[in-house]
Computed example of a mutant assay.
Amino acid sequence: MLLLLARDGRHPLGVGGIAREVHTLYFHWYGVLRQGGFPLDDPLWQYPPAAGPVLLSPGLLPGLSYFQGFVALALLADAAVACALARVGARPGRRLAGAALWVGGLPLLLHIPLARYDLQVTALAVLALLCAARRPRTAGVLAAVGALVKLWPALALLGVERGRATRATWGSALAAAAALLLVLAAVFDHLFGFLRQQGGRGVQIESVGGTVLAFARLAGQPLRVEYRFGAMEFTGPYVGAVAQASLLATGLGCAALLLWRVRARHWTEATPFDAALCAVLLFTVTSRVISPQYLIWLLGLAAVCLTSRATSQRPAAALVTAAAAVTTLGYPLLYEEVMAVTWTGTCVVCVRNALLVTAVLLSWRGLWRSGVQAGPPPRADLRHLPPVPLPPTPTKPH
C-alpha cells in the first residue's frame, strides 16, 4: 500500500491523485483549524466536530510534513486494529479469522486507506466493539469519540445486551460525548457549521441510487455528472426523486433496526458485532453517497464479527470482501469510465452495489434469526421415551 501511495497518479492506477485530498483539502482545513475555528460556509466541510483534532494531529508530529504525519497516523491505526483483532482472536474459543480478514482485505482497497482518515475512525469503532463485553464503559467512550468524528461508530452500541451492559455503555457514551463537545466548544468556533452542508447533498454516481440513474442515462435520459459537495453527482430529471427514495430507505432501515432491538431476546458474544455490521451496511447501502473509503468501515466490522465462532455474518463478510475488491476497479482504476457513465463503468459499479445489497440482506437475515427466532434448545419429550428398567430391590435374607 505504501508503494502504491508513492506511485499515486502513475500508470496503471487510473485517474490517480488519491493523495491529493491530504495534500490540498486536509492541509487547507488544518490551516483553518489552527486559527481556532471550523471551516465556515465551506461546502466540503461535512464532518462532526471531533474530526477537527484528527485533522490537526498530523501537523503536530515533530520532524514530519503534514502528509507524512497523516500517513504515519493511518499506519498506526491500521496496526492497532490488526493487533487488537489478533489478541482477541487468540483467546480460547475465539478465531484469528478476523485478523486475517483485516490484514488481507484492507490492501484490496489499494492505497485509499492511507489517504483518508477513515482508518482512524474504524479503529475507534473496532476497539469499542472488542471492549464491549469486558469493559462496557470504555466501549461507550470509544464509540462516542468515533461518533463525534464521523457519526457511524455510534451504531457500534446498537447490539449491546439489555440491562446493566446497555446502561453502562450508553451512559458512558453520552457522558463522554457531552464532555468532548464542551471541550471542543471552548477551543473552536462554529462547532456545528457542518450541518449546513448536509441538506444539499445529491446522488453520487457510485451510490445504489446513482446506479439507477446511470442506467437511465444510458437509456437516453438527459442526466449530467457534475462535481458537487466533494463528489461526482448526477444532476437533472429524477435525481430529486431518487434522493428522496434513498432517505426513505434509510428511515425504513432505521425502523427495521429498532424493531430488531425491541424483538431480540437472545444474545451471544457475537450479537453486538453482528448488529454493528448489519446497521452500517444498511446505512451505507441506502445512502446517497457510497465513497470507496466506506469499505474500510465494513471490512473492520466484518473482521470483528469473524473473531467469534457464534457470528451469523460470515456470508456478509465474504461479500463485503468481494465488494472491496470490485470497488477499486471503479475507483481509481476505471473511474474515468464511471464518470463518463459508459457501459463498462456502470456495470462495474453495479456489480459492487449488487454485492453490498446482497450482503445487507444476508446480514439482516442472520441477525434476525440469531436474535429473534433463535430459541433455547428443545426439551426432550419424556412421554415417548422407553421406560428405564429399575435395578432389582435387594431382599433381606431370612
Rank of each mutant, 00 (worst) to 15 (best):
R7N: 12
R10C: 10
P12E: 06
V15R: 05
E21A: 04
F27C: 09
H28E: 12
H28V: 13
W29L: 07
P39M: 05
P43L: 13
L55H: 12
S57V: 13
L60Q: 02
A79W: 11
G93E: 03
G105T: 09
L110C: 15
Y117C: 07
D118M: 03
V121I: 07
A125D: 11
L129S: 10
A132W: 06
A132K: 00
A133V: 00
V141F: 08
G146A: 10
V149A: 12
V160E: 00
R162C: 07
G163D: 08
A168H: 12
S172K: 13
A173M: 14
L181C: 10
F194C: 04
E206S: 09
T211P: 15
R217W: 04
P222M: 02
R224N: 09
E226T: 12
Y227K: 05
M232Q: 08
T235D: 12
A243T: 11
C254G: 14
R261I: 03
R265P: 08
A270M: 05
A270H: 00
L277T: 05
L277Y: 04
V289A: 03
V289M: 01
L299T: 01
V304Q: 04
L306I: 02
S308M: 02
T311V: 02
V320F: 06
T328I: 15
G330T: 01
Y335V: 11
M339S: 06
W343T: 13
V348S: 06
R352Y: 13
L367Y: 03
R369S: 08
G371H: 03
L385W: 07
L385V: 14
T395K: 06
K396S: 14
